Amino acid sequence: MKPQLKNRLTLLAIVAAALAAGAYAWTQLRATGPGENFASGNGRIEATEVDVATKLGGRVQDILAQEGDFVDAGQLLARMQIDTLEAVHAEAKARLQQSVAAQASAQAQVAVRESDKQAAQAVLAQRQSELEAAQRRLARSQTLVREGAASDQEVDDDRARERSTQAAVVAARAQVNAAQAAIDAARTQATGARATVAAAEATVARAKADIDDSALTAPRSGRVQFRLAQPGEVLGGGGKVLNLVDLSDVYMTFFLPETVAGRVALGSDVRIVLDAAPQYTIPAKVSFVASTAQFTPKTVETASERQKLMFRIKAQIDPQLLQKHLRQVKTGLPGVAWVKLDAETPWPANLQTRLPE
């Protein structure tokens, strides 16, 4: 065998041995971790998703965002046609004006009825004065008759006058009572008119709110993931127009066997290594540990044989860290999450935090 060929074969053998050793080491690292104080589970990068949807059914007029766009909370993303809503709003405002006019008329009626009552009270006071005068005159006549200074006819006339005046007082008091009843009725109508105005104002406000809700804004900052409708489409109430991903709420969900999950505490340190970028190690914190176990999902890989019961763990990535690398955040990427079971144990060199520049 030629020396040159022999050297090449030797080099290939060394490379093959190195690759085999590396593959074995990687397999062992994934299987057992860097020590008994560490555990791992596979998962995918996820983020909170929010659908931008219509409140009312209608036709989509404009969509101002494209897939992949970064948007801020409150930013206008789409508009719905509002011709019908504007007509409803105009009608509601017209009815409100009618109600306000009716309320003013009812208040005026209250004032009129109160004036009528004052007039009736004045008449009553006059009739009461006349009654007092008639009663005094009758008393004098009766005294004069006993003294022989007046005739019985005069007494009879005074008595008739006194009784007539009493009847006039009763009639005047009835007029006052009737005026008070009219005031109460007018006030009731005024109260009803005020309620009608309030209802009309609420209708106007509701129509205005429907118009405002037809301008679809971003409920939170994030990235547009999917465009689910196109301008001109007619959507029902709750129809989805866009799907947003909140890049400030990114996490990885993974599963650990019941023998390990009991040692995982909220706030425990986690390191995430993505399959697409194994050169980076992303720090995270345990934000959720399931209180009950579940059967092993099909997508979960375990170190040895499949465990029957697993606990779901959620590792949250720091929002401030995400803001620094916002445009590099990708959801759906698979990877491995390593969790430290003992807070005093340092991370091994291969799991120290390493982030892109």
Score class of each variant (00 low, 15 high):
L29N: 06
T32Q: 14
G33I: 05
S40V: 11
G41R: 05
N42G: 08
G43V: 03
I45P: 14
E46Y: 02
E49M: 10
E49T: 10
D51S: 13
A53T: 13
R59E: 15
Q61E: 13
I63E: 00
E67P: 11
D69V: 08
D69P: 11
V71M: 08
A73Y: 02
A73T: 04
G74L: 01
G74T: 01
Q75V: 02
L76Q: 12
L77R: 05
Q81W: 13
I82K: 10
D83L: 07
D83H: 12
E86C: 12
A87S: 07
V88I: 15
A90Y: 02
Q98P: 00
Q98R: 04
A101M: 05
A102D: 14
A104Q: 13
A108I: 11
V110S: 07
V112W: 10
V112I: 15
S115R: 14
K117E: 08
Q118K: 14
A119T: 09
A120N: 03
A120M: 01
A122D: 10
A122G: 03
A125R: 03
A125K: 08
Q126M: 00
S129P: 05
E130D: 15
L131V: 01
A133R: 08
A134C: 14
Q135P: 04
R136V: 02
R137V: 07
T143V: 05
A149C: 02
A150G: 05
S151W: 00
D152F: 06
D152C: 03
Q153G: 07
E154K: 00
D156M: 10
D158M: 00
